[in-house]
Amino acid sequence: MKKEIITLAHGSGGKPTQDLIENHILPRFGNPALKQLLDSALLECPGRIAFTSDAFTVRPIFFPGGDIGKLAVSGSVNDLAALAAEPLFLSASFILEEGLEIGELDEVLESMSKTCAETGIALVTGDTKVVEKGAGDKLYIASSAIGIRRQNPDPHPSLISPGDAILITGPVGDHEIAVLQAREHFFRELELESDCAPLWPLIKSLLAAGLKVKAMRDPTRGGLATVLAELARASRLCLQIEESRVPVKSSVLAACEMLGLDPLYLACEGRMVIIVSEESAQEALTILRAHPLGAQAAIIGEVLEKPEGRALLSTRIGGRRILAPLSGEQLPRIC
């Protein structure tokens, strides 16, 4: 049977476009705002809001542990979660390449639907465009999301103070290595899935326990080291972590050895760096570890007064060196 594919007609705004929306998108995202199919979604926003915007160009679009759809939802949710904002509404614009199999689009939509349901975020509006074959790589997704700010004051680098603890919610680098393997097939066998996941449920559990989060960032492009360098610069304090305490899966370490990569600079799509007060550190760790998304959470370091604006690494043999933000080469199309 010939596979149904996206053609330029699907982007013209006429019947094929309507068909795509009504038979492929709508059935998977059942919410009143979307169903109205107005030019804009009419929404009620009970409170102070956070608003984020992202674009996803990951290649390949399907990889172990996820796909571009799950990534788009997770990425947007995590940008909100990093500000302790409860995700409410999502918009998604799809740039489809002529020739994309509709079956693959359906799989991506199904995955997005599932991830939205897990998180409690509703896809309320969006767009579809079709570009000619060769002008886009199968599928790109641009998303925006709105959330309600649930912590007052909002997490912010200015809240960080000397003595605070630095936590990471799980092992680093899974996403980048999984995608790299899916793209290049370097290794004969690699049992590794992307860590791609929406983290709001995990962050929610911290807030529900009454914990005040000082600052959070998700280590996507540039990885853990880049995020720490940014937080250090923004807070004008020193963030120091210990090499031996950073969780890294042995397969990721082995892949890094083989490929000459540094796990501290690899992109994650389902991890959060969380800074809390020294007193709350143990409690935060316990709460994180009690949740499947934070099962391997760890306290990896502390905030110091000096040297100002620097992220540092305390090495296995007891040395100390800077963690500079990622410069130079970066693997393209990772998220």
Partner: peptide, 28 residues
């Protein structure tokens, strides 16, 4: 001369002395 705008190979090769100094040994 930085890894993003290198003047010579020592700053841009993954085994270059200047790249190593830039990435790991600037003032702590």
């Amino acid at each position: 001369c930085t890894p993003d705008s290198p003047v010579g190979p020592c700053m841009v090769s993954s085994e270059g002395s200047c790249a190593a100094a830039f990435h790991y040994e600037r003032e702590t």
